[in-house]
């Protein structure tokens, strides 16, 4: 069985009662993600994907194509409108997990690196405190052990250890990204979800963050979903890739195949636009 098997994952946004035809009236064929009848925004709909243990799955697509919506639902951070997700460490539909199960799963099974740093870190806390929070939430109560583990995670993610007791808002964007990664892997999760791990970073910093994560991913063999609008990121990390547009998956396959022999014109355009 796959580590994670998702079917029909769907998320609507909007103040209005969905009219019932929102999914049919949106998507790539219509060139929009907002239902013309009722105004509902279809963040994503009918998304199927699976992730094997140790595998890296890439999700690419232009801005607004629904990547973060999907990632946050899988990371138990966002309620789903519909869908069924089987996850190895959970009995039943992951999307139906209650609050306490979500907290548990997020602490121990699924680590998330958020697109927006404020969603992932408390900037007034120290960097070390942010990472410690994962351990504390998982029940660690020995201060010296927590300290040692935080220090290891800082080394692992290449954040200067002598900065670990400084407030996180004094860190550079790259360091904050690394601290988020340290926090996400603190409890050895089975799945890590990275949402735009390089957005907003200098190109040289981007490369180092990606190299660092690639090393950790290989050493720990942790299954990963990496979301990016940057094909380069996905090409570097992902074994398989799904391409999203207007809230739908329009193409999926081995990353090399998708990049070299895109079946869809849109994917072709995406690739051409970066080369």
């Amino acid at each position: 069985m796959s580590l994670l098997d998702a079917e029909n994952v769907t998320r609507f946004y909007g103040e209005f009662e969905p009219c019932g035809d929102c999914v049919d009236l949106t998507g790539p064929t219509h060139g929009r993600n907002q239902c013309p009848d009722c105004g509902t925004v279809v963040g994503c709909a009918d998304v199927d994907l699976d992730v094997e243990r140790g595998e890296v799955l890439g999700i690419v697509g232009e801005s607004g194509s629904g990547k973060s919506s999907l990632a946050e639902m899988l990371a138990l951070d966002l309620a789903a409108t519909a869908g069924n997700v089987e996850f190895a460490s959970y009995d039943g539909n992951l999307l139906d997990a209650n609050y306490e199960e979500r907290v548990d799963l997020r602490n121990t099974n699924v680590g998330m690196v958020h697109q927006h740093v404020r969603d992932g870190l408390n900037l007034e806390f120290t960097g070390g405190g942010n990472v410690a929070e994962s351990l504390l939430a998982a029940g660690w109560r020995n201060f010296d052990e927590i300290r040692a583990r935080v220090r290891d995670l800082f080394e692992e993610t290449e954040v200067p250890v002598d900065r670990m007791d400084d407030p996180t808002d004094t860190y550079s964007g790259g360091m904050q990204r690394r601290v988020q990664i340290a926090k996400a892997i603190a409890n050895d999760p089975e799945l890590v979800i990275l949402d735009e791990p390089t957005t907003g970073l200098d190109v040289s910093v981007q490369a180092r963050v990606l190299d660092m994560f690639r090393r950790i991913q290989r050493e720990q063999d942790v299954a990963t979903i990496v979301v990016s609008h940057d094909l380069g990121v996905v090409r570097l990390l992902a074994d398989r890739t799904v391409v999203m547009r207007h809230g739908r998956v329009i193409e999926s396959g081995l990353t090399d195949r998708v990049m070299e022999d895109p079946q869809r014109e849109y994917t072709q355009t995406l690739i051409n636009s970066v080369i």
Binding site: F125, T126, G128, G129, N130, A132, E133, L136, A137, F143
Partner: peptide, 11 residues
């Protein structure tokens, strides 16, 4: 969050 505050207090 309270535990983090205690952690930082000990730090």
């Amino acid at each position: 969050k309270m535990w983090v505050a205690l952690y930082e207090n000990v730090v």
